[in-house]
């Protein structure tokens, strides 16, 4: 069993948010296979940046209100 299957099994065993985590794991695997560890880091930073962008825009609005 390869590392991919091993981790998928672990995610599945935990049950909690398994669908979301499997999808996240697939993104990690894809970026790893294309660009290695740096690819994983930039993929995760990119995903976080999407949330952060929305957060920053809302924060700016609230700042204006305050």
């Amino acid at each position: 069993m390869g590392y991919n299957e091993k981790v998928l099994e672990k995610i599945s065993d935990r049950e909690q948010r398994s669908d979301e985590r499997m999808s996240l794991w697939q993104s990690i695997i894809q970026s790893f296979e294309q660009e290695g560890a740096d690819g994983v880091a930039s993929e995760l930073v990119g995903l976080m940046a999407k949330i952060q962008e929305k957060f920053t825009a809302l924060l700016e609005k609230l700042d204006e209100m305050a």
């Binding site: 970026s31 790893f32 290695g36 560890a37 994983v40 880091a41 995760l44 976080m48």
Partner: peptide, 10 residues
Amino acid sequence: EILKGITGAR
């Protein structure tokens, strides 16, 4: 390598 990548994302 994946663990390093995850840690590196900070």
